[in-house]
Design a protein around this nucleic acid. Sequence first.
DNA 1: AATGAATGAGGGTTCATTCAT
DNA 2: GATGAATGAACCCTCATTCAT
Lengths: 193, 193, 193, 193
Amino acid sequence: MQERKIKTRNALFNVALELFVDKGIDATSTKEITRAAGVAEGTLYRHFNSKDDLAWKLFEHHYGNIASSLLKAKRQSSDFRETVESTVVEFCRLVDYAPLAFRYCMLSQHDFLGRVADDDGNPVVVIHSIIQDAIRKGDIPPGDPKILSAMALGIVMQPATFSLYNRLEGSLESHADHFIEAVWLILTKRGES
Amino acid sequence: MQERKIKTRNALFNVALELFVDKGIDATSTKEITRAAGVAEGTLYRHFNSKDDLAWKLFEHHYGNIASSLLKAKRQSSDFRETVESTVVEFCRLVDYAPLAFRYCMLSQHDFLGRVADDDGNPVVVIHSIIQDAIRKGDIPPGDPKILSAMALGIVMQPATFSLYNRLEGSLESHADHFIEAVWLILTKRGES
Amino acid sequence: MQERKIKTRNALFNVALELFVDKGIDATSTKEITRAAGVAEGTLYRHFNSKDDLAWKLFEHHYGNIASSLLKAKRQSSDFRETVESTVVEFCRLVDYAPLAFRYCMLSQHDFLGRVADDDGNPVVVIHSIIQDAIRKGDIPPGDPKILSAMALGIVMQPATFSLYNRLEGSLESHADHFIEAVWLILTKRGES
Amino acid sequence: MQERKIKTRNALFNVALELFVDKGIDATSTKEITRAAGVAEGTLYRHFNSKDDLAWKLFEHHYGNIASSLLKAKRQSSDFRETVESTVVEFCRLVDYAPLAFRYCMLSQHDFLGRVADDDGNPVVVIHSIIQDAIRKGDIPPGDPKILSAMALGIVMQPATFSLYNRLEGSLESHADHFIEAVWLILTKRGES
DNA sequence: AATGAATGAGGGTTCATTCAT
DNA sequence: GATGAATGAACCCTCATTCAT
C-alpha cells in the first residue's frame, strides 16, 4: 500500500525531472508526465497539489541536495584549502553524475529562487558561509564575502554551464584542478599585485 | 508608412522585453503584449512570424548587442590589461544600464542558445577569442582557452546574476575593480603557486 | 463509464452530421458542435483528434454504410435483374431515409475521396464489381465496366442530387422504377441500335 | 487605365479559380489570392465586394458558360438525335478543356445552387428544356421531363466526376459515343421492355 | 489509491476587411 | 486605382484541474 504510493510518487518525480529539463516546465503537460509515469491523469493530484507544486518540490529537493552535498564536503575537510578542494570537486561531481538535477535547478531558478529560504538548504548560503568563516578565521584576507562567494561560485558555475551546453569536453571533474587553483587565487592572493 | 511600421515594431519589441522578463516567455500571452503595445493582436503577426519568432529576434538582438559591446571594448584597448579592464567594465555597465536586456538573455538562453551562431555575434565567442589572442601573444601563460574564458566569464557573470536577484548591493560597476583583479589573477598568476 | 463515453461520442457524431450538412464543414465551428451536443468544447478532443478527424470519421462511417447496404442488396438477390432492382431501390431508400448522411457524403467527397480505400467499403467499387461480375457471367454484353458503372450510378445519383436540392417531387423511391428501367436499358440493350 | 483594371480583375479571377479548386474556397485566403495575382491585399476589394462575391461571380461566370455552350450546341443541331450528340460532346469537351471551371462548379454548387436563377443561364434548365421540347415534338415517348433530364445528365455527369477524380482513363470525349448511346436508349426506348 | 471523462478558460494564430496614404 | 499596415473577432486546440466511479 504505502510502498506502492511511494513508487508512484517517485515515478512522477523522476519522469517530471526528465521532461522538465528536456522541454521546459511550461511546455510539459501534466498529461505527458502521467503517461510517461504510467499512471492516470488524475493520479498526479493525489501526490501533488498542482503542477507548480510538483515543479517546486522537485526544485526544492534537488537544490537542497546540492546544498547538503556541499555542506558535507565542507564538514569533512580539516582546513580551508581542503574545503575549497572538496567543495569544488563535489560540485563537479554533482554536475557530472546528476546533470538532469543540475540542469533543472539552473533553468527553473528564475521561477523558484524567490521561494528558497536563506538557510543551509541553499547552496549559495553554504558557499557564502564557507567564505565568511574563512575570513573570520584569517584563512584568507578580509573582503566582501558576497562578492567573493559570487566570484568563486562563478568560476565553477560557468564552466558547468558550458559543460551542460557541450561547450566543454570531458567531465567537469577532469577540470577541477583548474577551478580549485582559480578559486584559491582569487580568495588568497588579492591585493598582492 | 515605413515610419509607422517601425514604431509599431519597436513598441512590440520593447513591451515584449519587459513582459517576458517580468513573467517569463510562456506566461506572457500575445494578448498582453499587443495590449501593452497599444495595437491589435493580429498586428503582432505583421511584424513577427510567431510569438516564438518575436522572442527569438529579441534574444538575437540583445545577445548580439552584448557581443558587439564587448568587441568594441576590446578593440579600443591597446594592451591586454586594458582589454580586461574595459571588457569587465563594459559588461558591468550593460548589466547596470540595460538590466532587462541582460535578464532576458539569461532567462531565455535555455531556449535559444542552440540557435546562436559561433561567431562575433556571440559574447562567449568574443571572450574566448580575447583570451586565445592573449595566449598567442604571450600576454598570459598558455592554457585551455575554453576553461579560462569560462572561469573569467563566471567571475563577472555570477555577481551579475546575484545583482539581478538583489543578492548584491550597489551597481555592478561599483564592484568592477574586484572582478578585474580576480580575472587578472586567474589569467596571469596560474602555476606560480 | 464506457456507456457515458459512447453516448457523448454519438451525440457529437450526430450533431456534427447535422451541422456539417446545414452549414458546411468549414463554416461549422467546434464551439457550435459541442454546444449543440451539450458538452464542453474540450470534450470533442477526447473523442476525436481534431475537427478534421471528426469530419473524416463521419464520412468514413456513412460512406461505408452506403457501400455495405448496396453489398447486402446484391448478396440477397439471386439473378442480375434482381440485383439491379434491389440495389437501385436500396440506394433510393438510403437517400430517402438518411438524407443527411447522403448529403454529407456528397458535399464532403471533395475533401475525403482521396482517403478512401478501393475496397468493399467504397460504394463505387461495389457497383463496379456488380457490373464486372455481370459481364463475366454473360448477364450483359461486354463493355468497359468503369464507363458502365459510372453511367449506371449517374442515372440514380443525379436524380438523388436533384431530390436533395428539391428539384424533384416525392420520395426518390417513388421513381425507382424509372431508374431500374434506365439502368437495365443501358446495361443490356447496348449495340442493338 | 481601363485596360489595366481589366487585367487585374482577370488575374484575380483566374488565380482564384485555380486556388479554390486546389484547396477549396474556405481554405483559400484572400491574401493568397492577391499574392498569387501579384497585387496588394486591398486591391481585391476594388474589384469585388467580398471574397464571397468573388467566389459567386466566378461560379456564375463558369456555370453560365456551361449553359450557353449547351444552348449553342442545341441551337446548331437540326434534329433531336443531333441535339443529343452535340450537347453530350459539348459537355465532354467542357470537362476536357476547362477542367478547372468544371471542377469549381461541382465543388461549389452546394454553396451557390440556391442563388442561380431558373433560366437559360442554368445548364440544368437547358437540358430540361431540350427534353421537354423533344417530348412536345414527339421525338421521344412522353415522360416526366425532370426525371428524364436528371437521368440523362447523370449519364454524362457521373463519368465526368470519375474523370476528374482520375477513376477514368483518357479524355471524356473519347467515351462520348457510349454516353450518347446510353442517353438515346433511356430517352427513346422506354416502355418497350 | 487510482481512474479517466469532462471541463471551460485561455492559448497562439488566421483572416476578411478597412482606410489613410 | 492601388497599396499594405492595422484591425479584432473568431478559429481550433491544449491544458491543469475536478470528481464520479
